[in-house]
């Protein structure tokens, strides 16, 4: 079981978009390590030829018909927004290009 370093915690936080304070990295590292050590126990089980189970229902092919339904009122959805402009959600400048 690999030890979780401060740097790894920082990287996880970056991926998960959490601006963790520097001062808390060590504490998180310690806690995550204990948890990861414990969950690593799944590795002890032999799972050769076992199909992963992603849900319990066994359902397949659940579709809806291609018909339109009434949308929400725009006022209602924009009311909860932190900022709006011109009937759109206003967000701060974006650095990453997609």
């Amino acid at each position: 079981m690999s030890r979780i370093t401060r740097e790894e915690v920082a990287k996880l936080a970056e991926l998960a978009r959490l601006d963790l304070p520097e001062s808390e990295l060590d504490e998180y590292a310690k806690q995550l390590e204990i948890i990861l050590e414990s969950v690593a126990k799944v590795g002890e089980v032999s799972t050769k030829d076992v199909k992963p189970m992603s849900h319990a229902t066994g359902l397949v092919n659940v579709f809806r018909e291609d018909v339109t339904k009434e949308s929400l009122s725009r006022d209602e959805i924009l009311r909860s927004a932190p900022a709006t402009e011109d009937d759109r959600f206003r967000v701060p400048r974006i650095l990453d290009e997609e």
């Binding site: 996880l12 959490l18 806690q31 650095l95």
Partner: peptide, 26 residues
């Protein structure tokens, strides 16, 4: 920036247990 707002919002808005689990899942 939008990225910084996301980072700071999530840091402030989530409690420690939620953050721990998000990181374990990540």
């Amino acid at each position: 920036s939008a990225e910084e707002v996301m980072n700071k919002t999530r840091e402030k808005g989530f409690g420690k247990e939620v953050k721990r689990r998000i990181m374990i899942g990540t």
